[in-house]
Design a protein around this nucleic acid. Structure first.
Lengths: 227, 227
DNA sequence: CGGTCGCGTCAGGGTTCCGTCAAAGTGCGC
DNA sequence: GCGCACTTTGACGGAACCCTGACGCGACCG
C-alpha cells in the first residue's frame, strides 16, 4: 500500500487530505511542523510527501533540503504563495511538484498519483526485478528471497538492508548511506547495527557465512553486493 | 547535454521556449503537431518533452498515450485550459506535470529541471564513469578497480588517492594538493605518506611497479595519472 | 669525490575496524 | 498481561589498516 506523509500546520487542511487519502486506500501519516515531518519521514519511510511550505518551526525549503539529504522520496509542495521565486526555490531545492492553495482535491490527487507512478521501478516485466546469484534469488517486487527451493524468512530490517544493497548491485555502498537509508538520517554512525544485520543476512543467505562471496566488506568504506 | 522536445502549434510560444532553452544550453527540437512530435520523440530520444495539449491534428492526451506506450521520458504539459478534469486526465494518461498558460518562464524552467533531475539517475546499470587504461579499469561510481578480470582490493586511503589522481587524469597534481585532499587541510608537508601509498597503488595496479606507466612521478612537484 | 635532497621500499607497532555472541530492551498479537 | 519475534546494546578477539622510522638508490651540485 502506498504511504503518504502529510505536513501542514492547518488542521482543517490536514483533515481534508487525510480523509480523502484514506478513502482511496492510502496509508497516511500527518505532521504539523518540520521537525516532526523529518522524524516521521525517517521512521515511516513514506512513498510520497505532501508538504506545506508555511510551517511554524522552520522554513519549508529547509524541510525539503533535510529530506533530500538522504532520500529521493517524491515531494509535492503545497503553498499559499503564488510568486514565481518561491516556486523556483522550492523546486530547485528538490521538490517534485508545486501546487498553490487553494487547490482542487482532484488535481492534487492526480499529481500525487503521477509522482508515485514516476517513482515506481522502471522494469514493468516481472523478469527485471529478480536478481539471481546462483546460490539464492532476490525478488524485489514480491519482496521474497529464495534459496535451495525454499523461501527464506527475513525480518523487516534485514529485508530493507538487502534491498538497498541489491538495488546498488556491484556498487560500493558507504556505511553512512546504508545506515541512513535503512534506519534514518540520524543514524549515520551506529556502525554496529550494520555489523549485526550484515552477519544475519550472511548467515541466512551465504553458503559459507564466514567467507562471504556476495556480501563483501570493504573495510573502512562500506559493503558491496556481488552477484 | 539535455535534449528537450517542444510541442506547440503557436509559433510565438515555440520561439520563446526555444530561445530560453538554448540560452541555457539545452538542445532543442520543436514540433507543431502531434504526428511530428511522436516521430521526433522516437528518432531523437529527448530527455524531456514539453507538450501543449491544443494541437491541430490530434488530442494532446493521445500524444501522451502514444509516448507512454514505449517510453518513460518526462512529459511536461502546457495548456490554456484550467479545468480540473483536463489536468486529471492528462496526468493520469501519463504526464508528469501540468502548467497552465500563461506561464512564467522561470517557473516552467524550474519544473523542467525538476523533471529532468528526477529522471536522470535512472540509468544505474553498469556505471558510466569508467576509466580504462588498458591494464586496469577504474569505476568511480561503484568504487571498483578491475585488473586482468579480477577486482583489486584497495584500502580507503588508497582509493581516495587514486580517485583524486583519476579525476585529474592527465594533469599534474601537486603533492601539497594531494595531501590536503586525501589526509586533510593540515597535512601539507608529510610527503612520506604520498611515497608509501603511491608505492602501494603501483604495486597493486602497475604491470611493472618499479617502472610505472600510469602513476608518473614529477620530481619536486607532484604526481600525474596517465591513461 | 663527498654531500645533500628527493624518491622508493620495507617491516614493525599502535590503532581502528569488523565479525561474533549473548543479553537486554521493545513492540505486537493473542 | 503474557509470550514471541525483532531490534538494540555492549563486549571481546582478531583482522585490516595507517603511521612511522630506517635504509638504499640515483640525481644534482659544490
Amino acid at each position: 500500500m502506498t504511504r503518504v506523509l502529510v505536513v501542514d500546520d492547518e488542521p482543517q487542511i490536514v483533515r481534508a487530505l487525510v480523509i480523502n487519502l484514506k478513502a482511496r486506500t492510502y496509508e497516511v501519516d500527518a505532521a504539523h511542523d518540520g521537525a516532526t515531518a523529518l522524524r516521521l519521514a525517517a521512521t515511516r519511510h513514506p512513498d510520497v510527501v505532501v508538504l506545506d511550505l508555511g510551517l511554524p518551526d522552520m522554513d519549508g525549503v529547509e524541510v525539503i533540503r533535510g529530506l533530500r539529504g538522504w532520500t529521493r522520496v517524491p515531494i509535492l509542495v503545497l503553498s499559499a504563495r503564488h510568486t514565481s521565486d518561491e516556486k523556483v526555490e522550492a523546486l530547485d531545492a528538490g521538490a517534485d511538484d508545486y501546487v498553490t492553495k487553494p487547490f482542487g482535491m482532484d488535481e492534487l490527487l492526480a499529481r500525487l498519483r503521477a509522482a508515485v507512478r514516476r517513482a515506481e521501478p522502471a522494469g514493468d516485466g516481472p523478469g527485471d526485478m529478480i536478481v539471481d546469484t546462483g546460490e539464492f534469488t532476490v525478488d524485489l517486487a514480491a519482496k521474497k528471497v529464495n534459496r535451495a527451493g525454499k523461501d527464506v524468512r527475513l525480518t523487516p530490517t534485514e529485508w530493507h538492508l538487502l534491498e538497498v544493497l541489491v538495488r546498488n548491485s556491484g556498487r560500493l555502498v558507504g556505511q553512512k548511506q546504508l545506515l541512513q537509508e535503512v534506519w534514518g538520517p540520524s543514524y549515520g554512525t551506529e556502525t554496529n547495527y550494520l555489523r549485526v544485520y550484515m552477519a544475519q543476512l550472511r548467515r541466512k543467505l551465504e553458503a559459507d557465512p564466514s567467507h562471504p562471496k556476495h556480501f563483501v566488506t570493504e573495510p573502512g568504506m562500506g559493503y558491496r553486493f556481488e552477484k
